[in-house]
Design a protein around this nucleic acid. Sequence first.
DNA 1: CATGAATGAGCGTTCATTCAT
DNA 2: AATGAATGAACGCTCATTCAT
Lengths: 199, 199, 199, 199
Amino acid sequence: MQADPRDERRKQIMEAALPVFAANGFHGTSNRAIASAAGIAPGLIYWYFKNKEDLFTTILDTYAPFSRIAIPFATLAEVPPQVVLPRLVARIAELMTDRRTLLVMRLLIAETITNPDAGLRLNSMVKSILDPLAEYLRGQIARGRLRDGEALLMAQTVISMTVFFLIRRVVGQDADLLAYTIDDFSIFLVATFMAAYGA
Amino acid sequence: MQADPRDERRKQIMEAALPVFAANGFHGTSNRAIASAAGIAPGLIYWYFKNKEDLFTTILDTYAPFSRIAIPFATLAEVPPQVVLPRLVARIAELMTDRRTLLVMRLLIAETITNPDAGLRLNSMVKSILDPLAEYLRGQIARGRLRDGEALLMAQTVISMTVFFLIRRVVGQDADLLAYTIDDFSIFLVATFMAAYGA
Amino acid sequence: MQADPRDERRKQIMEAALPVFAANGFHGTSNRAIASAAGIAPGLIYWYFKNKEDLFTTILDTYAPFSRIAIPFATLAEVPPQVVLPRLVARIAELMTDRRTLLVMRLLIAETITNPDAGLRLNSMVKSILDPLAEYLRGQIARGRLRDGEALLMAQTVISMTVFFLIRRVVGQDADLLAYTIDDFSIFLVATFMAAYGA
Amino acid sequence: MQADPRDERRKQIMEAALPVFAANGFHGTSNRAIASAAGIAPGLIYWYFKNKEDLFTTILDTYAPFSRIAIPFATLAEVPPQVVLPRLVARIAELMTDRRTLLVMRLLIAETITNPDAGLRLNSMVKSILDPLAEYLRGQIARGRLRDGEALLMAQTVISMTVFFLIRRVVGQDADLLAYTIDDFSIFLVATFMAAYGA
DNA sequence: CATGAATGAGCGTTCATTCAT
DNA sequence: AATGAATGAACGCTCATTCAT
């Protein structure tokens, strides 16, 4: 039950570094800034991480919501989209209000410009929702609940609408969108989806 | 009618600096690299710009594709969505394959992380397409071509699907999406849209 | 008769540190490297030595091959140079192929540059062979085996030739000199010496 | 006639750096120390040299007395050793009283321990005297002025005696050797050499 | 005694910025 | 206007040294 003190320190540094990286990017963040945010001496970072990049990628690996996004689509094969989609929206909304997830996503998006690795991570993050969802939709088509069509593009419709809405409403606090709750949006999404792709 | 030589030089520096900034980010770009790209001595930058940051924000202010995205929706009130939407997709695709626009957008997105100002700029860019489109859709509803509904969310459906597709296909060169052409997507979008919101 | 455990540890550290210092120099050797070579924690060095420099100079003081080079010339007064000189060459060669002696000599020579003290040490080391040898040669002159002359310069002839040969052959592994064995050289030295200075 | 100002600065830095390197070795010398010795800002070193190592090797290349040691043995084929050897001694003595030559040699000797490159330089320096001298001696053997024998070892006899004497007398200021002038030594060397190897 | 985490000064190097020319 | 040498602060990182345990 006792936490490994070495892991404690690593975590402390990573949690202090994440917002600094997110605010200034990788190159814009100095080790001294990280150390000061973590309340430690700069040299100590190197006791726990090989170098600045190791700290950075470890943060991404640890906090990037890759697998955590996944909905257990496999167990939902019999559940209709009218139930699954709101659950997916709720799950993504939940993740996008998590401070750390949001910071990592910001970071990934910003770093994509300079760092091909970040781009790959971002894309694989997107795929990790998109592909299982498309697979689920193919199952629904087979079950006759949806019209035959391009499941990948259907999945993209769902994800793009959801992410776009959440970014503008939750993250951007856009005035026009604050008129809609996440439930409002969920209902709108299901209506759009079923009208467009329902059997 | 004679171009101010001072402005000529400023433009020369900005155009040379833009791709360098876009490739390496603000922190990753040195004045020496900019000067070398512009074919001038590093010191000269300071004759035309207060400092590196001034050069950077001036570039964003100058090249951000605010209004250029706009479609003349006012003159299209009688044209049905089946015609207008593909035109919109084509216009956005055109912008997103324009080298300079893409570079500035990359920078804007990356800067959004660091600089709240850039976030506002980006949102106002999105609004400058979204609002006229929503207005057009309200007109179509009034004309009985679309079912009654939340025009702003309908507009978001269009824009989010389009931008998401283009980012993943054109910018990200995602392997799965290279199977679809922009025309394929246009057809899919219109079908989705009309089935979902058509009268 | 029991070895002081404190001295045991000191010796352990010094013996581990010597080859590391010899391979990388004082500045090129980190305490971490020494500790790791000695199989102890870095902090422990400071329990046995004031600091890195103290450890270094203690090593030099302890292992410098001052007196060990000495040949018992006093007992050889009746033995002719033809016998004594090869024995001297062999002794010096033996020392210069002893790993630890060589390491210390390397360090001493290198330190001579930085530290005037080391220069004195080195000179006194040279004198400790040169002076007894000159004294022996004076005896040989008195015995009529050698022509009258400057015994000190004669002694220097012997030592300089020997050391120069051994450094270039044994230490430097110079290709040209690998053609000659130490015995070859010994014969050459005696021939040169006796032809030059023999009665 | 006008000196290139760029070369002036390079020379200034190199001349300031040489004694600092010679006193502390490569690793023991900081760029700040060099800059301060040269009276410039640390960053400026990098305007004139790629990095610290480039500065270091450029100094060695520039000041190492490789070719400058060479005596024109080719033109001296007819001149007997009795004349040539004193000239050689004088030349080496001259070099070894040159401040810069001495510093470079110190540096090379000290660096040899850590830096194989320095060892190679040192050896090639030695060879650049030894080999032409051996060649000259072979010529003298052919001319019947010297007995047949190992020319390389004869040459080593000359060089080792000379260098050993000069280091102890001129560099080390050894008390015993101050009794002898360089001319004294020259006479002793010629006598030794001709008695040992003369025809 | 012994450990190894922690410190902070200092390293080689880069780079935004200034300034004499 | 324009150059490019020069500055010096700051960077990522290493390491001698200290110290709580």
